[in-house]
């Protein structure tokens, strides 16, 4: 070692290893463990079950069996159709309620509270409440009879009246799950600084144009979240349907349940589960793309 090198060695401070701050990781741990045990592991298991033959080879036979199943086509159609009807209804209704609440009218906290009540009711409970409304001795028949519109009670929820079955399911779901969309949108609206709305007022925007050009674009992140959550949950729609219509209106999640619980076809049930997951993911990605914020808007372009 030359003198110069020695001197260099002395002048340089010793390399210290940066101390790692473990706290964030420790705090994350419970969530990670929870997700791993209850979500990631079952998901992987579903994949394995749906693709692996008893001999251990990769196979598509369970998916083929699922496709050939009598209920499959109907379940796929119903799941899509119900989602396509329910989600727009919920978003529009939730948006109207959220905008109404955001006007801060007298008593709006109570209105918000009442609208949010269904959040606390399980899908099964909601299904029971609404099916009691539609049964032969339910409120609907009672009301119609008292009004003298009908003489005999009508069996609304039967395979002879698919439109009524559909309508009842849609009504129940809209009643039950609009609240979650509404809560997300109310939170989103409250994040928008009021100066934007006042600017629109000052420059003479009509209510409709204010909604179209100011509120909705600024509400985009909240709308995106609400749509993703609701769509994923809509594909898992199951308990309400079972209560109202049994298997007359088959849905994908219901078929996974019947295959698993009733028919003991664990592999086909898993195939259904994988299909639901794939559909949910695809639609989520579609929403993310549709409602994306341009890079330039974020100041990175």
């Amino acid at each position: 070692m030359t003198v110069a090198e020695q001197r260099l060695e002395q002048t340089l401070p010793p390399v210290r290893r940066q101390a790692v701050d473990w706290l964030p990781y420790v705090l994350l741990l419970p969530t990670v463990v929870f997700l791993a045990v209850f979500f990631v592991y079952p998901m992987l298991q579903a994949f394995v079950l749906s693709f692996r033959s008893p001999e251990g080879a990769i196979t598509l036979r369970y998916f083929q069996a699922m496709l050939k199943d009598t209920y499959f086509a109907g379940a796929l159609r119903n799941s899509f159709l119900l989602t396509a009807i329910i989600i727009p209804l919920q978003v529009v209704l939730a948006l109207v309620i959220a905008l109404l609440i955001n006007t801060r009218f007298q008593g709006h906290p109570w209105f918000l509270f009442i609208c949010a009540i269904p959040l606390g009711i399980s899908d099964l409970g909601a299904g029971l409440i609404w099916s009691s409304f539609f049964t032969e001795r339910g409120y609907l028949n009672l009301i119609l009879q008292n009004l003298g519109l009908i003489n005999e009670p009508i069996t609304f929820l039967s395979f002879e009246r698919p439109a009524w079955l559909y309508g009842a399911i849609v009504a129940t779901e809209v009643w039950r799950a609009t609240a979650i969309v509404m809560v997300i949108l109310v939170a989103g609206l409250q994040l928008i600084p009021k100066d934007y709305f006042e600017t629109a007022d000052v420059f003479g925007a009509s209510s409709w144009r204010k909604l179209r050009y100011v509120t909705l674009p600024l509400l985009r992140p909240a709308l995106q979240t609400a749509l993703i959550i609701r769509t994923i949950l809509a594909f898992q729609l199951f308990a309400t349907v079972i209560v109202m219509a049994g298997r007359i209106v088959p849905v994908l999640a219901g078929e996974a349940y019947f295959q698993y619980g009733l028919l003991r076809n664990v592999n086909i049930a898993s195939a259904y589960a994988v299909l639901i997951m794939t559909l949910s993911m695809t639609i989520t990605i579609f929403y993310l793309w549709l409602l994306r914020t341009k890079e330039e808007e974020l100041g990175r372009g």
Binding site: P193, D195, Y196, E198, T199, A200, V202, F203, G204, A205, S206, R209, Y213, V214, P217, L218, R220, T293, E297
Partner: peptide
């Protein structure tokens, strides 16, 4: 016409669209 303390320039519109906002309305 009004200028706000926070500017209230719309983040989802280009500068052109922002300036044009009132005229469009």
């Amino acid at each position: 016409g009004m200028v706000f303390q926070s500017y209230a320039v719309f983040p989802h519109m280009t500068v052109f669209d922002n300036i044009a906002f009132g005229l469009q309305m």
